[in-house]
Nucleic acid binder design. Structure first.
Lengths: 281, 281
DNA sequence: ACAACGTCCCGTACACTGTACGGTCTTGAT
DNA sequence: ATCAAGACCGTACAGTGTACGGGACGTTGT
């Protein structure tokens, strides 16, 4: 670690030489510790717990983290900050949780708690269309309650009880209506992808507005002349559609419109699949 | 909550007061500096540049960052590391770029360079189906060449020349085939969302495999018994579909299948929109 | 009753991040 | 030749996650 010849006051002897500053002997590569899924799984499915010596529970730790993220955003959630709020030493948190990454996984699962009253709530809607719309709205509700979930970019979540229940409840909507298992999975993930993207877009807009103080329309009104100045009519279609879509989307109802549109596409896809199944040519 | 004799031994004077550790007088809240979009825009559309004193060009800075991200992932891209590779002082980078966030924006736009040979390449495909498939594959190619793009979670990119060209080339596929402008925008974003999600899933799988050394099937084979042990048949549909979808997806061809399936959905959506337009009843 | 053990608590320290500040040097225009 | 602009960059700071090791405590075995 100690670069030997560094010295010579600060003259930078070789000057223009290729590698006057390049050092970093290979040392040993240490990956950042690969996230203890085993233990996370155990923590996710823990039965119940008595508070430990300091009165701290894993559940309250997670809840505190979630509350903090809700109020000040995900980047405000640091181990030190959490410890301070809970009035314990920073390192005490590590006796409840293997590390921050794992805590985040726990937060994810915990925020899904109580999404559906029971596993058949969604299925009970009249028809799969109503069911899918119900599911989509519930998902959006979660994202609106915990916007930081949109920053997680979760693709392969560790499987916790609440995520499981959510998954089950949502799959049941699609079960037994004439799709095979792979189609069910594909449709479900299509719906999630859309809802996530749609919510993320809306949230991004909200944040931009909060930070810059400019609404989307105002921002475009200010940026457009600069852009047109620099791309001299090279991109006719883009300059026609880009601003317009945003202009139309700006009113709150239009985000809503885009959201419904995506759900509708999923519904139509299901309809087509079923129809083709019914009459195989 | 707080067991009585907590204090004593360790002194810690106030001890059991609620706030022995809570301090942090309000001070002033400082946001992390709001990302200078104005200047980023100027840098994105810069015409050309002569190398500066040290021989450093913004273009080579960006390219170095991209290469590094390609080879070691986005988290390896730090200002110090970049400076070391380029053999300049860390703070020298800041005379070329306002900060790291802006550099990331520049990296995003730069990696889109040359995606299409010309603005009509995609449109030139025979029919919108071929056009959309072409676009989807090109997008995937970019994500495979630069997997770290999948970590960016870009929703509102700053508009650079390459992003513009990409946008234009892709919109042209949908232009003039009977969709209105809002539909074009919606379809395009639906396609991007799908490609992004699909590539992200594949990449996540690759990473998991690289880190744990377990393939997806192996991982499920190991995890499933643990899970079933803890969720005693509570989630029948989920336990039927979850493992199966992953099992089937494991062979490389199956990721491909899912990718195509999503594109097909988009194509069908376009077809439906056009059909309904043609005969407005 | 006592000892031993495990587990929680946590102060300190380390390696690493982005970048503010202020100085020095180079270069191009006048 | 002068001078201002701007590139360069050493140092420092506030912040991050967490490794380490020691001290305090509760439970359990004897």
């Amino acid at each position: 670690m100690d670069r030997a010849p560094r010295g010579k006051a600060k003259q930078k002897q070789g000057a223009k030489g290729a590698s006057s500053r390049a050092k970093k002997p290979p040392v040993e590569e240490q990956r950042p510790r690969p996230k203890d899924d085993e233990r996370t799984l155990a923590l996710l499915w823990r039965r119940q717990e008595r508070p430990a010596r300091s009165g701290l529970t894993l559940a309250t730790l997670i809840q505190t983290a979630i509350d903090l993220a809700d109020q000040e955003g995900l980047e405000a959630v640091t181990m030190r900050r959490l410890a301070e709020i809970l009035d314990v030493g920073t390192m005490s948190l590590y006796s409840h949780v293997p590390g921050k990454a794992e805590l985040t996984d726990l937060m994810w699962d915990a925020s899904l708690a109580g999404m559906y009253n029971d596993l058949d709530e969604a299925k009970r809607q009249p028809g799969y269309r109503a069911g899918l719309e119900f599911v989509a709205r519930r998902n959006r509700t979660v994202f609106e309650a915990h916007p930081w979930l949109l920053d997680l970019n979760i693709t392969r979540p560790v499987i916790g009880p609440n995520a499981c229940a959510k998954y089950e409840a949502e799959l049941r909507v699609l079960d037994g209506i004439g799709l095979d298992d792979l189609e069910i999975d594909a449709i479900a993930s299509q719906l999630w992808t859309h809802v996530f993207a749609s919510c993320r877009w809306a949230e991004e807009e909200r944040r931009a507005q909060r930070e810059t103080g400019l609404s989307d329309v105002e921002w475009w009104a200010r940026t457009l002349p600069i852009l047109e100045n620099v791309m001299h009519g090279e991109f006719p279609v883009a300059s026609r559609i880009g601003p317009k879509s945003n202009e139309m989307r700006a009113p709150e109802s239009s985000t809503e419109h885009h959201f419904r549109w995506g759900v509708e596409v999923v519904v139509q896809t299901v309809a087509t699949l079923i129809r083709n199944r019914a009459q195989p040519t």
